[in-house]
Simulated assay, not measured.
Amino acid sequence: MNLYRSLRVAPGVTSVVGSGGKTSLLARLAHELPGSVILTTSTHILPFDNMPLVTDGDAQSVEEGLRSSRVVCVGAPGREGKLAAPSLSVAELARRADYVLVEADGAHGRPLKAHADWEPNVPATTRRTILLVGASGFGRRIAEVVHRPQLICERLGVDGGDVATPELMARHLAWEMEQGVVTPDVVLVNQCDGEGRRDEAARFGEELARLLSVTDAGARIPRVMGVSLLG
């Protein structure tokens, strides 16, 4: 399966937000896409394995990198070996490659996430936003598997010791969409590496659609897909 076709990734800027496999998704899309690709971030990202890296930050360096490789990662050196947003804007990068893929969110390695009011950092030139959800967090305690668990507890009136069921996480995503915190075009439930996980992804999607259908956000019900990016 060509995942980029299923996700309807078009030339231009695509932003990936959420939790539970953003880096894996970006790497797979970069491999599949039929043209030149720049991988970058609006927050922080670890360099990709076996992928050319451009850290000089000027247009000439990016163009030279793309002449040598169909895919390059562009970012400014950051702390702890991570890359920060490059000096060139995402719009400038998009003028130099067919596709720009942006990691526009962070989750500190947790499979599930609640967004603070300054997140995610989606560039204005984004044409498509993909939100990831890590199914490995379903059925476990909120405090263990959610990045910023206190926000879910405050918003939904639950406790950190409660279970992060697919229905509860769908309820929280519906809240974020109603508030305009996130506006995904498609939701990708990753880590669906068994029948049980696929069933949970289906429950999540059904509950999200049900909740959004009776709100003002219902006009923008995202498509929900279940995958295993490592499978």
Results as ranks from 00 to 15, higher is better:
Ala104Thr: 09
Gly194Trp: 04
Leu3Ala: 08
Arg141Tyr: 02
Gly134Asn: 07
Val72Gly: 06
Ala202Glu: 13
Pro120Val: 07
Ala91Val: 04
Ala174Gln: 01
Pro120Ala: 05
Arg223His: 04
Pro120Trp: 00
Val71Arg: 01
Arg127Met: 07
Leu229Ala: 05
His147Val: 02
Leu101His: 02
Thr126Leu: 03
Leu66Asp: 06
Glu178His: 11
Leu33Tyr: 08
Leu173Cys: 02
Gln179Tyr: 01
Arg220Phe: 02
Gly81Ser: 07
Val182Asp: 03
Val224Tyr: 10
Arg127Val: 13
Ile221Glu: 01
Ile130Gln: 05
Val16Asp: 07
Gly65Ile: 14
His108Pro: 00
Ala94Asp: 14
Leu29Asn: 08
Gly139Ile: 09
His172Met: 13
Ala219Tyr: 07
Leu229Tyr: 12
Gln150Glu: 15
Arg127Tyr: 00
Arg8Asn: 12
Val224Met: 09
Val37Leu: 11
Val71Lys: 01
Gln191Gly: 04
Asp58Ser: 11
Ala114Leu: 01
Val71Glu: 01
Leu168Thr: 00
Glu176Asn: 10
Glu144Trp: 04
Val122Ile: 15
Arg171Cys: 12
Glu207His: 10
Glu200Ser: 14
Ala143Cys: 11
Gly75Glu: 05
Ala201Ser: 12
Glu206Cys: 01
Pro77Ile: 00
Arg8Cys: 09
Arg110Phe: 07
Ser15Pro: 11
Ser15Phe: 07
Leu7His: 10
His108Arg: 15
His44Ile: 09
Gly21Ile: 00
Pro77Leu: 02
Gly205Arg: 10
Ala84Trp: 02
Ala84Gly: 15
Arg203Met: 01
Ser61Trp: 04
Gly21Asp: 08
Pro123Thr: 03
Val72Ile: 14
Ala27Asp: 13
Val90Tyr: 05
Ser42Thr: 15
Leu188Asp: 11
Leu53Gln: 06
Gly109Lys: 10
Ala107Glu: 06
His147Trp: 07
Val189Leu: 11
Glu144Lys: 11
Val214Glu: 12
Arg197Thr: 08
Thr125Asn: 05
Val90Ile: 13
Asp49Pro: 13
Arg96Ser: 11
Leu168Phe: 03
Asp49Gln: 12
Arg141Val: 02
Lys82Tyr: 03
His44Thr: 13
Leu173Val: 03
Gly218Lys: 07
Asp159Tyr: 13
Asp58Val: 03
Ile221Val: 15
Glu64Asp: 14
Pro184Lys: 02
Glu178Ala: 14
Arg110Gly: 04
Ala91Glu: 15
Val102Trp: 09
Leu188Pro: 13
Pro34Arg: 04
Ala217Pro: 15
Leu39Ala: 10
Arg70Gln: 11
Thr125Pro: 14
Leu188Ser: 09
Ala30Asp: 07
Arg79Trp: 08
Gly160His: 10
Thr23Cys: 05
Arg203Asn: 00
Lys22Phe: 00
Gly12Glu: 05
Ser36Cys: 06
Ala143Arg: 14
Val37Asn: 08
Leu156Pro: 01
Glu167Pro: 07
Thr125Ser: 15
Leu83Phe: 09
Leu101Arg: 02
Ala10His: 08
Thr23Met: 03
